[in-house]
Amino acid sequence: MLEYIVSKYNFWAYVILLLIGLYAMVGKKNLVKKLIGMNIFQSAVILFYISIGVKKGGATVPIFLGDAHAAHGHGHALIDVASYINPLPHVLMLTAIVVSIATTGVALAVLILIFRRYKTLELDEIMKIRKDTGV
């Protein structure tokens, strides 16, 4: 059992982070904590993607160093895919990081608006004000 957990530790880490984030988003009463939960949640997804690009057995960064054969147009067979980690998930996550930052930015701006309106960021207090004013 322990071996099973250790051998797939990247997935366990991602699932635990995902659940922490989800719990914070659903369970926490403070809106900023919800936002932090959202960030943890998104980071979990990003780490998951990055971990699936990894290859065991000495794979390195995918920088093609070039060789004599490649220069003459016969290089295709010489690129050993197994010796490079898969760069695609990493590139995808660059986009996801940008999305995550933009979401955080918008959410923080919206939180400022909420604070100006209700003078608090506690969910239950806001709900009480909303109930009292009938919004």
Partner: peptide, 14 residues
């Protein structure tokens, strides 16, 4: 009340 609705949408949408 729109910012609050927007925040809930941000959380759920994300």
């Amino acid at each position: 009340g729109a910012p609050f609705a927007a925040f809930r949408y941000i959380i759920m949408g994300t």
